[in-house]
Design a protein around this nucleic acid. Structure first.
Lengths: 144, 144
DNA sequence: TCTCAAATGTTACGGTATAACAAGGTGATT
DNA sequence: AATCACCTTGTTATACCGTAACATTTGAGA
């Protein structure tokens, strides 16, 4: 089962980082994993409420913030949503493509293009930190 | 005065595009211009209310949407804000650098790098829409 | 002038996110 | 074990962000 495998990797990752993947955080991670693409905080909240009876927004936002900080999720600002990071543990930077119609996500390697961007930003005096690039568009299926 | 100059350029730009920079839209553009960096919709709304007595959210959002569509402003998703486009007429896609320390914003031309990104995304079946790239980092002043 | 389409006004609501404080758990030290 | 400090989670309330839906006005062209 892919989810279990991911959770296991996430567990190891958190231990290495010296942070705790508590039961609640793991549960939220599982809920995000159960979707194939972008998930919204209030969707996770609704799911969480189904599973534990009651939950408030801060509960879910805190867990999501933790998971983003730990590098297990990415926040997709343009859609107010979250996606699973498919390169946990790898240090490479991702180019994340999000289909605005169906929410499908694809991750490519952004290293070459980020080299160019670093150079361009450097010319303006900016030192850009390690990060992912996110682009929205339409996937093949939604374009036809 | 820089603002008047920008407005004039915006006027010409809109005429060329066959769209109308109405009094309201011009007023909103002036309000955004009066800030040096990122502005939020509700800040503009408050300013607008000071100037005309009353205004509701849709009024300001419609004007902002128009100005973004016309290429006069960029939306900064990560900050729920808007900035003036400093490349009106040259390019409608910006590479927006935000200093995570002081909030300063710099805008470069993202067209070349987006060409590369479009090609890369196309290989994965994605047609990416017109958009801005936003990168966070530290500006020169904050690095010293 | 009349008509149609675009722009703006208005009301109401729904989605997104956080502040502030309370309560519970855990591990280290004594 | 008792205490303390710290992190995590619960809870309430509220602030912020954005849009749907419909009414009204405006303006350009027939």
């Amino acid at each position: 089962m892919e989810i279990a495998c991911f959770i296991e990797a996430a567990d190891r990752h958190c231990q290495q980082q010296g942070v705790k993947l508590t039961a609640l955080r793991r549960q939220v991670l599982e809920l995000v994993l159960s979707y194939s693409g972008v998930v919204k905080a209030y969707q996770v909240l609704a799911d969480l409420q189904k599973q534990r009876g009651i939950a408030a927004p801060p509960t879910v936002y805190r867990a999501l913030d933790f998971l983003v900080a730990a590098g297990l999720l990415h926040k997709v600002d343009a859609l107010n949503g979250y996606i699973v990071c498919h390169h946990v543990g790898c240090s490479h930077e991702g180019l994340i493509l999000v289909c605005g119609d169906c929410g499908r996500v694809e991750e490519l390697d952004a290293t070459p293009v980020l080299d160019v961007l670093r150079q361009q930003a450097g010319g303006a005096g900016f030192a850009i930190s390690q990060q992912n690039l996110m682009l929205t568009g339409r996937c093949e299926a939604c374009r036809t």
